[in-house]
Design a protein around this nucleic acid. Structure first.
Lengths: 101, 101
DNA sequence: CTCATTGCTTTCCATGTCGGAAAGAGTGCA
DNA sequence: TGCACTCTTTCCGACATGGAAAGCAATGAG
């Protein structure tokens, strides 16, 4: 046999777990709103890579991107949605449980 | 531009981070020794999958597999090595830092 | 001795994910 | 109209991952 009901069901959120996305969520969880460029620099990825990760988080309903043309410059502010915060908190709780929080 | 020195260098341990391996390390961090089958059931993966993940952890020097033939039965006990514990602790610390520990 | 079983291991394979590079697209300015 | 700024999307090669199944060593049954 190969498996068994464990009593310890793994509850990882696959959308959040990958390092870049965990960092993005971690940053957003602490600030209400952060600009695309700031997140990009904090996470240390390229524009395209951040864009792709953010897209996944948006599709999951975890992040909202607000595009605004302020002072003639395009600015994209990122923030966690309610669902995003919930999912992030749950994921972090799960991480703590698994890592012996 | 695309990046910037952040002051917040990500220090994820790629060998440990993936869910199955994080679970394996979490389990082993709490017990000194656990049998292959017990880990397999706790993590909820197949023999082959666990074997492959354990192999990676062993190659990284994080886990040690002790094979013993006890009571005429083959038993493989898994345990974290010192390096494994160090790496796991560091990874967990990094997770906490990033997730706002 | 031979065969079946237990307990992992390894191989094969189809699918997914990831990041870099580069082309695209939307907006405002000269 | 052309250019710059800010993301987006596409293209692509490099892995990573899990399931299924074959392999293997050790042990016990017949």
């Amino acid at each position: 046999m190969t498996s068994a009901p464990t009593g310890t069901p793994p509850q990882f959120d696959g959308v959040i777990h990958p390092p870049p996305r965990l960092q993005i969520c971690g940053l957003l969880a602490a600030v209400d709103t952060m600009e695309f460029a700031a997140v990009r620099d904090a996470v240390g990825v390229s524009d395209s890579v951040l864009s792709k990760h953010v897209k996944q988080l948006e599709e999951a309903g975890y992040v909202k991107a607000s595009k605004a043309t302020i002072a003639s410059r395009q600015r994209t502010s990122l923030s966690l949605t309610k669902d995003g915060r919930r999912a992030f908190d749950a994921h972090v709780a799960e991480l703590r449980r698994i890592t012996g929080g």
